[in-house]
């Protein structure tokens, strides 16, 4: 685990009688892109939720930048999620009533930034993701691929150290998905943001530096990297 920005050790998590994680250890270095693969129901999303502090594991520890998430007070853990972590899901994360620009500016506004400063940053991130032309549109008036790139911009606008992406292209056609993945990984790599990329698709995992496979709540790390 030396050099790990985020590390999980022996995570166990059950929902009722269903065991989602059965002793998972995982680590990711700063700026690294790691795909978490596995079939549906294998526990990969639960792993993402535990790594990001959304869920508390039943057993095991998650350490981020020297801090054990389970020992942090709730308020500090929430702050960490807003400042150091970014999230992209399959769909539905943008506020439909706001413009794309306002959506991207929102995390900065919630953190106390003035509107003008937040919107300037939002414009820059929309440009970096190649969707500057969506700034004045509302998400329902953009394509699925554009919406996801706006969502990536929103996730990265606060300069997170880790981006958690859960099936970010699962609802997109091949070409749109590819554009989102390329934009997301290019921009994250350029800004030194690590990505935990949850996917069941090998073509998506191929954008990562390495992959781990979760099956039946256990991780199978590739042995011949």
């Amino acid at each position: 685990m030396t050099g790990a920005l985020l590390a999980a050790v022996e995570l166990h998590k059950s929902f009722g009688s269903t065991r989602a994680l059965a002793g998972v250890s995982f680590s990711i270095a700063a700026g690294e892109v790691v795909a978490v693969m596995g079939p549906s129901g294998s526990g990969k999303s639960t792993l993402l939720h535990c790594l990001s502090g959304i869920l508390a594991p039943d057993e095991g520890t998650v350490t981020y930048d020297g801090h054990e998430l389970g020992r942090l007070p709730d308020a500090q853990r929430s702050l960490l999620r807003r400042t150091d972590f970014g999230f992209v899901f399959q769909f539905g994360q943008l506020v439909p009533e706001l413009t794309c620009l306002e959506n991207v500016a929102l995390p900065l506004r919630l953190a106390g930034a003035k509107r003008k400063i937040a919107e300037l940053a939002a414009v820059e991130w929309l440009e970096r993701l190649g969707v500057a032309d969506t700034a004045r549109k509302r998400p329902p008036d953009t394509s699925g691929g554009q919406s996801q790139r706006v969502a990536v911009a929103r996730a990265l606008v606060t300069g997170p150290k880790v981006l958690f992406a859960d099936e970010p292209t699962g609802a997109l056609d091949s070409l749109s998905g590819e554009r989102v993945l390329k934009a997301m990984t290019d921009v994250a790599r350029a800004s030194g943001t690590a990505i935990v990329l949850v996917t069941h698709e090998s073509r998506v995992a191929a954008y990562a530096d390495r992959e781990v496979v979760v099956r039946d709540g256990r991780i199978r790390v590739s042995e011949w990297q």
Partner: peptide
């Protein structure tokens, strides 16, 4: 698993 690793490396 070994085959998957080799395939994914080629895909990367």
């Amino acid at each position: 698993d070994a085959q998957r690793t080799t395939h994914l490396r080629a895909m990367r």
